[in-house]
Design a protein around this nucleic acid. Sequence first.
DNA 1: TCTGGGGTCCTAGGACCC
DNA 2: TCTGGGGTCCTAGGACCC
Length: 338
Amino acid sequence: MRDWVLHLDLDAFMAAVEILRNPELRGRPVIVGGNGDPTTPRTVVSTASYEAREYGVHSGMPMRTALRRCPDAVYLPTDLPAYEAASAAVMAVLRTFPVVVEVWGLDEAFLGARTDDPETLARDIQRAVTDKTGLTCSIGIGDNKHQAKLAAQFEKPSGVSRLTTDTWTDVMGERPTTALWGIGAKTAKKLADLGLHTVNQLAAADPAVLAARFGPTNGPWLRYLALGRGETTITTAPWVPRGHSHETTFTHDLTDPAAMRDHIAALAGRLATETEGRPVIRVTVKVRSVPFVTHTRQAKLPEPTLDAATIQQAALAIFDRFAQDRPVRLLGVSVEYA
DNA sequence: TCTGGGGTCCTAGGACCC
DNA sequence: TCTGGGGTCCTAGGACCC
């Protein structure tokens, strides 16, 4: 018996929940995103069913692009409460197994398990999730969260894959650095400029060079990722958010400063009702102007507060520090807790 | 591909103090 | 009295993830 980390990833989660609610959608391309009207500008795909992915549609893609690629798909608005309920049902199924469950967003979880046969455990979990909720999932098995997370992507949908320290170099060594969980396009480009294209090259890189380029924490961490290392602690402790935010991208640009101020006040007022008793210590305002230029301004409050009017006034005072000379496509407010 | 919304963490640089 | 160096706090922005 030994310890394993499993990562469970629900397949095409939001689309799958919609198909459960309306079985006539089964087998058809289903695309969930925005208000469900794919002609609305400035909205993006949240989840595409596997049938829709055949047309090159994926999450993050503008809805209008999805419509061009897949005009016959069924387009649906996002329905967060429905996804939260389905997610909770899945997590409850996981907790019936002798595993430690760490919820990682709506459609993912890490599981800590002690067993001789993690594949059989994974198949048992998949079967139970599907029997009880109708949803399918992929499961990755690893020595740590990083390995398990990557393994879960190897065979989707409904797959079970294992990636461990023993197989790491064989499986990952020649892949591009973007294959690692935490390295995106920007970092990959900077690594390529240093001559580091593959996981093996990054693993063999000089930590001092990485630290000089990416900073004292991030530099060494990149190499750590490339060596296949990662967090092994699984915790059931509920996540305590550091802060909350709300933002709005307007379908049509805002040009009226009074309307902008009203919107900032509304966003701040909404946040003030969502603190769950945690005092706010900092407020940040975000403005995205035409064409697509984003700036933030923030202020630490003189003292922690729960008072809605104080939070709104702080947000407005911060907003008034922006040069207001361009049409605005996005306004946002975020708060940070003590 | 004309680019959402909600999060987290890190870094650089300036202000200020001793 | 023409100028050091360290520590801490704060702000703005960047990168990544789902």
